[in-house]
Simulated scan of single mutants.
Amino acid sequence: MSEEKQLAFETRALHCDGHGKPMHAHVWPIFQTSSFVFDSPEHGRALFAGEQQGHIYSRLGNPTVEALENTVKELEGGHASFAFGSGMGAITCSTMPFLHAGEHIIVGDTLYGCTVDLFHEHFHQYALEVTAVDTSSMDAIKSAWKPNTKMIYLETPANPTNKISDIGEIAKFAHERNALVVVDGTFSSPYFLKPLKLGADMALHSVTKYISGHGDVVAGVLTVTTEDQAKICRGWRKVTGGLLGPQDAFLVLRGIRTLQIRMERIQQTALTLAKWLHDHPAIEKVNHPGLEDFPGHDIAMKQMSGVGGTFSFTMRGGYEAAKRLLEEVKICTVCVSLGSVDTLIEHPASMTHACVPEELMIKQGLTKNMVRISVGLENVEDLKADLAQALEKCEKPKA
């Protein structure tokens, strides 16, 4: 793979799973099997003892899943990748096996709702201290630091406000204090953001989103930078049973083949819509890193090669206007998740982030008049016209 590492991203996305596929297959076949046959009792013993490489049981490893993991590893520039049955599986593996009772983790104050739930409702059961801070502020991180801090966990861009954190600066600060940095880059995909190259120790994605990209898979992936981290992840997944299934791995591999072209088109359309909404009289604020007046714009341009297609905006008419907008769109699909080939629109406060405590919502700037949109591959003028007719109705009373 050393020669392929010099190739462009889109070329590697098509070829880094190798040409020597089983039975001369053009694409990786689906190994839909729970177990693998041993050549002999000695062969089985050697596999279980770790003396030979091979497959034993699909919870421990499956060729289709490993083809996906090797592909993501190459695209992320990491040491090893691990595929899970959901993004939350990757998030859990990136934190819990690396922390011990009595230790402290700093987490971003703006995160996906279930991530917030994990950190603030469940970590205390394992005697783990959690402090949520604005990770776009180094002063906030420094103020929250404790002698027992072992990890900083953040999303950038963060869901749903697109808050941008400086990965390089955070990693430098944490590594000087022997702590790990974990970055959820779901909003960008590995095409637009490479956290490991910026200094993060682990990078993860909800593969359900842009990496797969077609709204038909639930999956997660975690990429690590050292063999010690990889050993911990292998052991964790072995006993917790979160391995991705081969059918889903096959679909994700297929999605990766078009990741670059999807992201480029989606980014272009989303920025056009964000600029248009920015100047619309019904819109109070647009949270898109590509806008020059967005607070994290400069850092985003420094550490990202593109800004993705998911952003949020707030309605001047409050919650009722946000609700009416979702009721009136015709092309945009009212649906949670993001990163699909079609445009999805939702209300974070009552949907994806409903489990976030109200005080943390306020801290995040996650208001009830906020709408999140994940732009797809539709024609930009069609999307603009759909939003325009819905926004016009928001300003009029219902018939």
Rank of each mutant, 00 (worst) to 15 (best):
T269E: 02
K396T: 03
S34K: 13
V181A: 03
C16L: 04
D17P: 00
D293C: 15
P246H: 09
R262S: 04
F38E: 10
K142H: 11
I211V: 14
A13V: 01
A219K: 07
V341G: 04
G102F: 05
S305Y: 00
E327K: 06
V37L: 14
I91A: 10
T367H: 10
Y153V: 02
H26K: 12
R262N: 09
T343A: 12
H347T: 10
A388T: 13
S2H: 06
A390Y: 04
P147H: 03
T208D: 08
N159I: 11
E169F: 02
L291Q: 11
C16F: 00
E4G: 07
E292R: 15
D248P: 10
S337A: 12
H120M: 06
M23D: 05
F250V: 00
R262K: 08
D109I: 02
Q260G: 10
D342F: 14
V65H: 05
E392N: 13
A83C: 12
E103G: 01
A8L: 07
T223Y: 02
F31P: 03
A13S: 11
T225Y: 00
K398F: 12
A322N: 02
I266Q: 03
G85K: 15
S86L: 10
K398Q: 13
Y126E: 08
V341F: 06
F250M: 01
C16R: 00
F173M: 01
C114Y: 09
N62Y: 01
R59G: 11
H79F: 08
S206K: 02
D382Q: 11
I261C: 13
G235C: 12
R12K: 03
H288A: 12
E264I: 06
G102Q: 07
